[in-house]
C-alpha cells in the first residue's frame, strides 16, 4: 500500500465502480445514500483539522462516485479516530463514521490495510489484546498490581474462547493473520 496521497490529476469518472456504494451499505454504511454533502461532518472532523486528504464527507462522495482505486490508494481512513462527532452532528443521520468504517472493511477485503492494523489484529488473536506489552509485568508490579491483568492473558480458557469467536468471524476468511491455537505470545507490541 502506498503512502497517503491526495487525488491528483484528472479523475476518470467513467472508470467509477457502481458496485462500491452497495458494498459499503452491506458492510455497515447503510445510510450512505442519505448524504447531501453538506459538509457538516467535515466541519466536526479531527482528520480535517489535522490535514488528512480523505475524511468523512470526501470518503462518502468518492464512494458514491465509485472511486475505488483512489480510496484504496490513500490510507487516510486508517487515521479516523472513531470520535463520532460527525455522527453526533450529521443532520441526515448518515452515520459518517460508520461509512468510514465500512470503507476500511472494503479495504481489508482487498488487503489494503496498514501494517499496524495487521499487527493489532494479530495481537488481538494471540493475546486477546490489540495493545499488548510483553514487558508490562514489571511496571504492573511496580505499582502494586499482579503481573497479569485478569484478562485473556491470565486465562488460557478465556483466550481460547476469544480465538474460537475470531476463527468463526469474517476475519478468518480473509487470511490476513495466521490463526493457530496458540497461547499468549511474547512478541506483540504496538
Amino acid at each position: 500500500m502506498s503512502e497517503m496521497q491526495a487525488v491528483t490529476g484528472v479523475v476518470n469518472l467513467s472508470a467509477g465502480d457502481p458496485a462500491l456504494a452497495g458494498e459499503i451499505r452491506e458492510l455497515g454504511g447503510a445510510e450512505l445514500l442519505e448524504c447531501i454533502q453538506c459538509a457538516k461532518c467535515a466541519a466536526a472532523c479531527p482528520m480535517v483539522l489535522a490535514g488528512f486528504s480523505f475524511f468523512n464527507k470526501k470518503v462518502i462522495h468518492a464512494i458514491l462516485l465509485g472511486l475505488r482505486e483512489e480510496l484504496l490508494d490513500d490510507s487516510s481512513i486508517w487515521a479516523c479516530q472513531s470520535c463520532n462527532r460527525c455522527t453526533e452532528v450529521c443532520p441526515r443521520e448518515v452515520n459518517p463514521f460508520e461509512v468510514v468504517q465500512a470503507m476500511r472493511r472494503v479495504a481489508i477485503r482487498e488487503f489494503a490495510l496498514p501494517t499496524l492494523s495487521v499487527e493489532g489484529l494479530k495481537s488481538l488473536y494471540d493475546t486477546g489484546h490489540a495493545v499488548y506489552l510483553a514487558g508490562a509485568g514489571n511496571t504492573r508490579a511496580k505499582v502494586g498490581l499482579p503481573e497479569k491483568p485478569p484478562s485473556t492473558v491470565a486465562s488460557k480458557k478465556a483466550l481460547q474462547e476469544l480465538q474460537t469467536i475470531i476463527r468463526n468471524s469474517a476475519l478468518a476468511d480473509l487470511g490476513i493473520i495466521p490463526m493457530g491455537e496458540t497461547g499468549v505470545s511474547e512478541t506483540c507490541e504496538v
Binding site: L27, G28, W78, C80, S82, Q101, R104, R105, I108, L113, L116, S117, G120, L121, L124, G128, H129, A130, V131, P150, S151, T152, A154, S155, K157, A158, L159, E161, L162, I165, I166, S169, A170, L171, L174
Partner: peptide
C-alpha cells in the same frame, strides 16, 4: 474482575473487519 475479559475490541481491529465479529467480541 470480570475474569477472562479481552480487548473491547479496539476500533482498528475487528470493528474495521466486520460488524458481527466486532459485536461478538464485545458481546462476550
Amino acid at each position: 474482575n470480570l475474569d477472562g475479559q479481552s480487548c473491547c475490541p479496539s476500533w482498528g481491529t475487528l470493528p474495521s473487519v466486520d460488524v458481527a465479529g466486532w459485536c461478538a467480541v464485545g458481546a462476550r
